[in-house]
Nucleic acid binder design. Sequence first.
RNA 1: GCGAGAAUGGCGGAACUGGCAGACGCACCAGACUUAGGAUCUGGCGGGGCAACCUGUGGGGGUUCAAAUCCCCCUUCUCGCACCA
Length: 886
Amino acid sequence: NSTKPCCTLVHSPLNTIQYNYVTEAAIVDERYTPQDIEPKWQAYWSEQCLHQSTADHSKKKFYCLEMFPYPSGKIHMGHVRNYAIGDVIARYKRMKGFSVLHPMGWDSFGLPAENAAIKHGVHPAAWTYENIEFMKKQLSGMGLSYDWDREVATCSPEYYKWNQWLFLKLLEMGLAYKKTSFVNWCPSCATVLANEQVIDEKCWRCDSSVVQKELEQWFFRITRYAEELLQGCDSLTGWPERVVAMQKNWIGRSEGVEVEFPLEGTEVSIRIYTTRPDTIFGVTFICLAPGHPLTESLTEDKKGLEAITAKYGKMEEKEGLFTGRYAVNPLTGERVPIYVANFVLMEYGTGAIMSVPAHDQRDFEFAQNYGLPVKVVIVEEQKSEVRSQKSELTEAFEDEGVLVNSEQFSGVRSGEAKAQIAAYIEEKGLGTRTVNYRIRDWGISRQRYWGTPIPVIYCESCGIVPVPEKDLPVILPEDVTFSGKGGSPLKESESFIHVSCPSCGGAARRETDTMDTFVDSSWYFAAYCLKKGQKSEGGIDLLSAVNNPQAEINHWMPVDQYIGGIEHAVLHLLYSRFFTKVMRDIGLLKTDEPFANLLTQGMVCKETWKCPEHDWLFPEEVEDGRCSKCGAEVVKGRVEKMSKSKKNVIDPDSLIRRYGADTMRLFSLFAAPPERDLEWSDKGVEGAFRFLNKVWTLAYRNRSRKTEDRAQNPDASGLTPQAAQLLRKTHQTIRKVTEDVEKDYHFNTAIAGLMELVNETSSFNPETEEDASVMAIAIRSTILMLAPFSPHITEELWSAMGEKESIFRQSWPEWDEALAKDEEVELVVQVNGKLRAKILVPAGLSEEDAKKAALGDERIREITADKEIKKVVVVKGKLVNIVVGA
RNA sequence: GCGAGAAUGGCGGAACUGGCAGACGCACCAGACUUAGGAUCUGGCGGGGCAACCUGUGGGGGUUCAAAUCCCCCUUCUCGCACCA
């Protein structure tokens, strides 16, 4: 069989063999086999410690970070995309001569581990570490250039010790405190949720309806940094605008006035907050939050109050209850009824509001429901007359205008009136100007096992006692059972609860709540900088960095490029900014902001299929547009984010097995720019694979071509026109790819540029030695530029070309502007803005000559023959537009 | 309602500060090679027209020699926030 003639040989002028048709037997060692190549180079990189990062002060540093994953069990396409983007950047920056830090770790505390424990009886730690091990293998299979020496897992005592240490620091600084409050409670997860974790009044994780529950909880005083977090937004120039907008929104600063409304018949007064002091003459009632300190004593109808309190936080229906008491408007002396209303929030402002139904839609509707008066105090500027009263109003007039019925302020425009009235109120001692923020303190207590134990001890005689630093970490106990029924398993651990008081030595008990896992991820980027080798060699050490400007953390921070999903636009990113400022104030680091540049990558989506009977279908369940189970006609669903429930997921492992990691990476980078959603296409993946095969064939067959001849001949003289063109194209491509990567990480167009170059190189047949060396340059440049995208194939080809050193130790190719310049350009000739001819002219032609050339063109002369030429516009090197009359 | 973004062939997407619309890829069509092709290669590919040419970037106006790009108005979609006083 082996002697069977199997290929057609075509001899080129240079006697290089080109295989037009080859059987499998003949090309076995020439064929691109990612399955062999990829593990080989992964092992090599690891042996060579190629990605280890040390603070090298002779080079510019670059900290490239992707959001670390929760070890759920398997990586998905979202991870693949995220890490592919990060890896290209890291590898590119290294080739560009930067000293790069590119770490990876595990956000490994959290609910799923505990749920697995309840369901399968496996300990959360065992479950988690098993997942980590598996996922780490998967990541290695992708050929990602991480410095695994700095790996962290937030569930390791080594890590959470510092969570606890930071907690103690916050406690010292008065930034951690305990209070009783209404909290968001997820009945299904049986735990408290932060405000940021409640989405549409549902749990962000399990989607169950969140209820309000009164509990004593630990809080972080993020509000103390509200102003700085807001101001800092302006320095986030490397962040997407919308993320910054979302952060600003969340912090929600508003300027207003707090005004005292005396309570009729008493010495007490009610303090309200308003941003519209200009409407204060229009107040016709005031509302208290159900939880307001005065509510209880003012309200006679206790049952009614209970009913209103029960509806607190339920925003669908606005309900109120008249307390039976009145307050006095301090500016008008008018008496206004006091209501308790379920929509007034205790947490915002003062928990009491003044209601101006004429100028606030919600107040307006409330007034209609409860038959309260409406008093107009602002009218549109043009109609400065007071229009007759409430009967005409069908809705509140919320815009700015001119004040009426407002005593000495009547006739003043509302913008101006705000300032005047606020000043008047302060002057008369009726209230004060204040700033309010929407953001509230961050509740971090969770009634869970698989999280960082909060390091405090409760003592009968000493009260709340922090665990001394020397006793850290407070380790999660092993003797726990996971019943899934009510409360934290830590409550059941006798060995954990009982402890002697560090202060008086008496019997005491430990805090059994653990920290929100968002605490873990709020400083992990700093942990990587301070991690030295594996555990045995010291691990993370924050202490050494306190007030130490030489600490490595100050070399690497801030993160130069952070990459992750948009879903963290508020939660994680805001907490991390907060922690960074706290760490700065502790003396741990010198930066104000953790992430200089942020790239929020789009989702990975795929088409879906839906059967009227069987709901979502896997693609293989669709046969000729019909459901394979019932034969019903299948509807093509929308392109949606990959999810198990929609049955449109692609498993990265199966892709790697079939096409290799290089193809998977390449496609995920080519199909769309990183910040946009990506539609996964099986055919598109094949296209990427085809391209790599093309590169392989081209580079492998020409692997022994040398570039030397070009060295003596720096310009293009002596080359055949085809070779000169290829050389030009090579330099143009280097320029294009570099600029695309540098500018916005637009890898899709960078890859397109490489494809063009490969196409052009493939169809090039060198006729001279010099031409051949141009081809070698083109190929080597291609391989070098492709390396960050598809690292294995390029490393293999690089070595096949006889290179001894890793391609990732090479410099990124540079272009020569002179060589990138076209000798001839195609000049577009328009007549009245319409394309009429294209002429080839030498580059750098003067405007006058371009004009002459355009007007001299046969076709143009024909068109313009009997017309009056009014004007000729010349865009140098590009276009001539001839404007003619009719 | 407020904020951010988007709309370009059959599809994903290109087009730098206004200057050839549709790069690159997918799909499709034709051809070559082949026992075969879901491999490879070559060519074609917005729409209309034999052609010259006309027309075309969600819709309508405008500015300009020239508009996907700038200005005004409108439509649709995506995302985030939303009784915050």
